[in-house]
Amino acid sequence: MLKFTIRRLLITFPQLILLSVLVFMLGSLMPGDALSGLIDPNIPASAIEERREELGLNDPWYIQYRDWVFAMFQGDFGTSIFHQRPVMDVIGGRLMNTVWLSLFSTVLIYLLGLPLGLVSGRYNDSLLDTTITGYTYLGFATPQFIFGLVLLWIFGYNLDLFPTGGSVAPGIEPGSIDYVLSKINHLVLPSFAIALIGLVGTVQYLRSGVIETKQKDFIVLARAKGVSESSVYNRHIFRNSILPIAAFFGYEIVALLGGSIFIEMIYSYPGMGRLFLDSISTRDFSVANVLILFYGFLAIAGALLSDIILSIIDPRIRIK
């Protein structure tokens, strides 16, 4: 267990280094540098050149890369050309919104997906199961952005039940009960848009897991021992079919964070995905670059988390 975790940790380092090199290369391909925002006809070109030399922008790439990495270790992620603020400040302002959105969606996915999958697997080939399976079929074929738009169209505009954009109603004092309620109200549509499409995978895997497990010998044995039907499903079968889903937990969260670009755009939700698109369209590449690095880092961390969860929960590994 410990050995596995350490070995698994070790292979994340080359991945991190490669990721950072790639992001650095992307960064140097992007037009503009730290001085582009400062260019002013009143400043002579020689002065700018001097500044460039001072900031090390004329150094060979490997020295620049080294400086860039060292700066990041000291918490310096560069300055946003558009906002004229440190990149970390700009991202920090949006971070919590995306975290809340992902948290809500994750809870919804498991809250809705697990019962649906269990019921569908338990009563397979019943009318209920056919309905649920039909839904997963549709869900797999529906791109998230279309579903998000349709939800917004129906519940946001036509029925006017939920706000159509933003993360909180304007003019509410932060910290009050109203503020929290308004935040939740703004989260409902986007998180359902993510969850109702995102849960189809969970439902499908849980369903086939339950169907496969319930034919196994140990289930027959449990029944023969007189274990009640609900206990057979809730404890014996559920525990065995949940393994793959639990193992994908890390990936799920990362995918949610990454996939929120579309939803944040549709609902004008001021999170990191939205920030990424904004910074691309304002050509604020220093922000975009750090966001790519951040998402890549999250993906590596998510993969690590999933692997470690699997090694913890899988009894076949615990036995040894």
């Binding site: 990936y251 995918a255 999933s306």
Partner: peptide, 22 residues
């Protein structure tokens, strides 16, 4: 293979391409 890997392309989860899970 040391690492456990889902065949979900990042950011496109549940997009339903054939992966080793189905």
């Amino acid at each position: 293979d040391m690492s456990v890997k889902a065949d979900i392309p990042h950011g496109a989860s549940g997009h339903g391409a054939l992966d080793s899970k189905n």
